[in-house]
């Protein structure tokens, strides 16, 4: 199949979309394999290949992240860009590929952005203080099933940044809430639950992310299906932490 790609190319402070027509693509290729094919041809022509982030290519690491036709990770629901296949496009389509756009995510090159800001949020409170050593017995701390389920759903976040990219406010609240809810739902996370909510929201705000206005755009963008209820829980935890 044929596709015309419009890809954001940037090596300095500004960039532009560059058009690349591609022929002989297989519908069974992944989106990233298509970029590999493009890069091979660019290298053969002596041009600079398109820089893009990728690692596991099986949808579990959170490295890949592309804005495909204005949709984070492309048109398939609950799918990372690496797991998106060309069969979901029509032969002859024009596809625009851009990097995540947010002030705290500066573009490093082409489609690669620096997502260290998400690490700064985790450093501010996305952990528990626990004595280390040999692994505790699995049943040493009983966890109610419902709490375990909530924690697990939130822990599925791979930190790809799609929620920020899709948010009309450039907010990282879904990411922050997923981390806070993951730990805040478990017994091990209780001692630091209130300071965690305050410190993570503070870090989120200080990094220059926008505020959440409950537009809900992050939900279809999230490849791991993190629910909006996590944001409600973080809001509740933060308000409770101040009112206690």
């Amino acid at each position: 199949m044929k596709l015309t790609l419009r890809i954001w190319r940037q090596s300095g402070p500004t960039g532009a979309l560059v058009t690349y027509p591609l022929d002989d693509l297989s519908p069974d290729m992944s989106f990233l394999e298509m970029l590999d094919v493009l890069n091979e041809s660019l290298v053969l022509r002596g041009e600079e290949p398109v820089a893009f982030d990728h690692d596991c290519r099986e949808g579990i690491c959170g490295m890949c992240g592309l804005m495909i036709n204005g949709v984070a990770h492309g048109p398939e629901k609950a799918t990372t860009a690496c797991q998106l296949h060309l069969r979901h496009f029509r032969d002859g389509d024009t596809v625009t590929v851009e990097p995540w756009r947010a002030k705290p995510f500066p573009v490093l090159r082409d489609l690669v952005v620096d997502r260290s800001a998400l690490d700064r949020i985790v450093e501010s409170g996305g952990y528990i203080s626990a004595p280390t050593g040999s692994a505790p017995d699995a049943h040493a701390t009983p966890v109610p099933k419902q709490a375990a389920d909530t924690a697990f759903t939130s822990a599925a976040c791979i930190g790809c940044g799609a929620c920020v990219a899709a948010c009309p406010n450039g907010s990282a609240m879904l990411f922050t809430a997923a981390k806070a809810t993951h730990l805040g739902s478990l017994p091990q996370g209780q001692p630091e639950r209130w300071t965690r909510a305050q410190d993570m929201v503070q870090a989120h705000d200080d990094l220059g992310f926008g505020g959440c206005t409950n537009a809900g755009e992050c939900i279809p963008a999230c490849p791991k299906g993190i629910p909006l209820t996590t944001i409600a829980q973080l809001n509740r935890d933060l308000l409770r932490s101040h009112l206690r």
Binding site: M67, G70, T96, A102, G170, F209
Partner: peptide, 8 residues
């Protein structure tokens, strides 16, 4: 929070 917007 988003000084540069999306082209598409």
């Amino acid at each position: 929070a988003r000084p540069v917007g999306y082209e598409h």
